[in-house]
């Protein structure tokens, strides 16, 4: 028997008064996939995640979650967990008490993971008995994730989960999400941090003014023919500059900078031109120490959309 998609949305439209928050959104999320939702402020990301959590119901369109049609608010099936607009935590209680109270509230839904295990997974064991009042934003985010883990979800919805996370916290959270996905849980997260989305997500949906501007694998965002800016750090910047000028499809940008006393080259190139440039560098025995896009394909697409929205 085929496993149903975690999320299948067709033509989802949601109004707030006269404001169209979502306009004919189609979305497919497979089990075990980490799916990013990005878009400018007001694009409809939180509204979409709220619909998936059952906090509201679409005015038009059909929504299936874990293979079950959802037709009214607060009627999503068991197995959906997460938060929008930050995790709901009670500051007068400790981290452990928050989770214990939630576990008692959920009852038999939470038999799959114990509280200590959930706290350990997000790296909060040392502060488990501290009151949440003193927690930083990042710690709250991690505790919110632990709360969602209690139900061992099959669809996890997270709104800006990396907000306020320090590198250690980020490592914990990403580790948890990756493990969940490996176990078959579909994870949907929104973020303004493109590097986070690229690092975590296999697919992404870009929303703009309530509509889907792109939905699919991130790799498809960067077409081989489209030109991107790359930062190149070599052992011989002068020679590298000369080679760049001589290579078809490479344009030198003006904003060359110096990093650790070494000149950094910034070039615009398509993928084939970039391949040719690297090949020539190697042939002339110039070491390539760093080669990275100045702006990621996802961020480039995001910026292009934002720009387009402003122009409209």
């Amino acid at each position: 028997m085929d496993t149903p998609p975690a999320v299948r949305a067709r033509g989802i439209t949601k109004y707030f008064g006269e404001v169209v928050a979502l306009d004919g959104v189609d979305l497919d999320v497979a089990p075990g996939q980490i799916h990013g939702i990005v878009g400018p402020n007001g694009a409809g990301k939180t509204t979409l995640l709220g619909l998936l959590l059952g906090l509201a119901v679409a005015d038009r369109g059909t929504l299936e979650i874990l293979g079950t049609p959802v037709g009214r608010a607060l009627a999503v099936p068991v197995g959906v967990a997460g938060f929008v607009d930050g995790p709901g935590l009670y500051p007068s209680m400790t981290a452990r008490q928050n989770l214990a109270a939630l576990a008692a509230l959920r009852g038999d839904e939470t038999q799959t993971m114990n509280i200590d295990e959930a706290i350990a997974q997000v790296g909060l064991t040392d502060v488990a008995d501290d009151r949440v009042r003193g927690f930083s934003l990042g710690m709250r985010q991690r505790l919110g994730l632990a709360a969602a883990l209690l139900t061992k979800p099959r669809l996890l919805i997270l709104d800006e989960p990396s907000n306020g996370l320090d590198p250690a916290g980020k490592k914990h959270v990403y580790g948890v999400l990756t493990r969940l996905a490996a176990d078959g849980t579909a994870v949907m997260l929104s973020s303004h941090r493109m590097d986070d989305v690229e690092q975590l997500c296999s697919e992404v949906t870009i929303l703009s003014a309530g509509r889907v501007a792109f939905s699919g694998p991130i790799s498809k965002l960067a077409s081989e023919d489209s030109e991107l800016d790359y930062r190149v750090l070599t052992s011989n910047p002068a020679a590298a500059r000369r080679i760049a000028r001589q290579t078809n499809g490479i344009r030198l940008r003006d904003e060359d900078t110096v990093k650790d006393g070494v000149e950094l080259l910034v070039i615009s190139a398509t993928i084939p031109a970039l391949d040719e440039f690297v090949k020539r560098l190697v042939e002339e025995e110039i070491a390539v120490r760093e080669l990275a896009p100045v702006v990621s394909p996802l961020e480039a697409a995001f910026l292009a959309l934002t720009e387009q929205q402003e122009n409209n």
Binding site: G71, V78, Y90, R106
Partner: peptide
Amino acid sequence: AGTLVVRKVPVSRGYRFELVKLLS
């Protein structure tokens, strides 16, 4: 509700949850 399985939390558990919050 049709094929949809909705689990609402019983009032007794909600009541205990609210008491815990108030007493904290």
